[in-house]
């Protein structure tokens, strides 16, 4: 393959990576922004989404139907679990930033071990809903991967619409800006928090369901998405969805392109370097407000 086609392939792979990363990172960014808490268990919500997708796909005989069922059911299940965790655990800690970090670290182990006991240690494949291959002049490319990009873009568009145009988004933004004043205008902040936490976890689960036909489900698969989501959120700026999206695109594309042309460690070095530079020269992130 010539350099041109190779670069095209790398860009495609990077775009798929960026799309899935953007979903997971926007989920993390929402709870970061609205609730001012760091959710260390975010990667485990991703993992749960993937493992549950396998379970749902197992229960449904036809592959396309199983996938669609997983895409609908898993985010709802993971979101409901997150809602319960916020209402039952984080609310009791009054969402104190430090206590929440410790609690979600513990939670991530519980979720991991829970998945291990329920679903076992094996990597589980989920069949893609369709096997269309796109034949380009230089190479064939998975139609499913392009579907992932489109689906992620649509979900992100929906999130953007909710945040900027809907009442729920208005209430979430008001809570983010000033929760005491939000309460003084009838906003049930506890419910907004639980809903935001659920939405963030649900987005991680959507990302995971989309990824399982490409990457198998496994109880330890939450680490990478967590780390990369953090990198993206820090680069993009705390609480800025636009920044998160742009950073996800940069990191995803860089990861895809670098790891195709050079040894994969280089991509990780790049991401780490980018975070270090942002932290040194623009600690509030590229699009975050100065505190």
């Amino acid at each position: 393959m010539g350099t041109g086609p190779l670069l095209l392939l790398a860009t495609l792979e990077g775009t798929v990576m960026a799309a899935v990363l953007a979903l997971a990172a926007v989920g993390l960014s929402l709870s970061f922004g609205v609730m001012r808490v760091v959710n260390v268990a975010h990667g485990e919500f991703f993992m749960l989404g993937a493992v549950l997708a396998w379970a749902v796909a197992q229960a449904v005989p036809s592959a396309p139907l199983g996938f669609v069922a997983a895409l609908v059911i898993c985010p709802v299940l993971v979101g409901a679990l997150a809602y319960a965790i916020d209402a039952g655990l984080l609310r009791r800690l009054k969402h104190d930033p430090e206590a929440t970090i410790v609690a979600t670290i513990g939670l991530s182990y519980i979720l991991q071990q829970g998945a291990l006991s329920l679903f076992g240690p094996d990597a589980r494949p989920v069949e893609a809903p369709f096997t269309l291959r796109l034949q380009l002049p230089w190479f064939g490319y998975s139609g499913y991967k392009l579907f992932v990009v489109v689906a992620a873009a649509l979900v992100l568009l929906a999130v953007w619409w909710v945040m900027t145009r809907s009442r729920a988004g208005l209430v979430m933004r008001a809570t983010q800006i000033d929760r005491a004043t939000a309460r003084a205008f009838g906003i049930n902040v506890d419910r907004v928090y639980a809903g935001t936490f659920a939405l963030g976890a649900g987005l991680a689960a959507v990302a995971a369901v989309l990824i399982v036909p490409i990457q198998q489900a496994h109880y330890l698969m939450g680490h990478d998405p967590l780390l990369l989501s953090f990198i993206v959120v820090i680069i993009g700026g705390l609480g800025s969805i636009r920044g998160t999206l742009i950073a996800a695109l940069v990191i995803g594309l860089a990861d895809g392109i670098l790891s195709m042309l050079y040894p994969p460690t280089l991509a990780k070095i790049f991401a780490t370097l980018a975070v270090a530079l942002v932290l040194v020269f623009r600690p509030q992130g590229l699009f975050g407000a100065r505190p």
């Binding site: 208005l170 209430v171 933004r173 800006i177 000033d178 005491a180 939000a182 003084a184 205008f185 009838g186």
Partner: peptide, 26 residues
């Protein structure tokens, strides 16, 4: 209805959105 000391507006939101929050209350 409460007008707090120092106003405590939702500064990053528009005038219309601030009013909308007030309208939604009741």
């Amino acid at each position: 209805g409460y007008v707090p000391q120092g106003r405590r507006l939702f500064g990053a939101m528009t005038v219309a959105e601030n009013l909308e929050i007030g309208l939604m209350t009741r």
